[in-house]
Amino acid sequence: MTSLDTAREAPRAVAFGTRLPKARKPGRRHLLPGFGLTFGITALYLVLIVALPLAAMLLKTFSLGWPEFWRIVSSPRAISAYWITFSSAAAAAVFNGFFGLLLAWVLVRYEFPGKRIIDGLVDLPFALPTAVAGLALVTLFGPAGWYGQILVPLGVTVTHAQLGIIVAMAFTSLPFVVRTVQPVLEDIPEDVQEAARLLGATPFQVFSRVILPLILPAFTTGVVLCFARAIGEFGAVVFIAGNLPGMTEIVSLLIFIRLDEHNYPAAAALATVLLATAFVTLFLTNLLQAWQLRYADKSR
């Protein structure tokens, strides 16, 4: 087994901070040359590109003072934007949880014609610009679109409705669950299930008692990543949502409108809320990953 083979075991889209089980402890500090150089480059780049702009925004937010900040972030329009954003993202994450698990299972467990094409297509949402995805979805689901022609007469309106936001979010975050579950599923030895089956477990029992616990951490991580990505999605959503305040207006769009209105304090305050959300999800994925690693250790 070459070292490259093991790469596959590292779940691709998983937050990468925590050390993986087979990693070597670097132990001796600074044995290899280049600490100064790589630290210098990384720190300088992060300060210039990431930290400094973030600090500029936080400074702006802090200058508002707490009462003003609270007034902005708790305004009725902001609250309905959070609700729309988070509930849509949750629905998209649930859909992708099911669909992603199904795809991962099928792609890992079975050989069938067209498998490689489907495997490739899974990456489409990451490769396709979100504005293009939005244009495609609004055309598909519009009253004259390929799907809209069927759905609209049935009373299902997707465009300019919350369903449209969910569709756009689900599309753009689809690969996460597939790509986190796939490698873990591949690692489960066939004989584990075989043993369970020979011991008399039904297929359902094999899945729920043997497989599900093993993939649960990776699966949850995938769903959380999916949720996080959906919260931040903008390009695809604005094309399909109709952007009606209080009905189909997401937080990112509200920030954009506040900027256009030259209402910078409000833009800064709302952006800070989204930034805080990002930190929370980052923290969650790291926790989940630690959980996953404990599982991985146990299963070995």
Binding site: A15, L46, V50, L52, M57, G232, I255, A271, L275
Partner: peptide, 26 residues
Amino acid sequence: KRLLITFIEIPFSVSPIVAGVIYLFL
């Protein structure tokens, strides 16, 4: 190191609109 890793990860989990906003404020 953990702090550094957090900063590496942030752009991945933040909305692109926020990315634009922070540069405008800078």
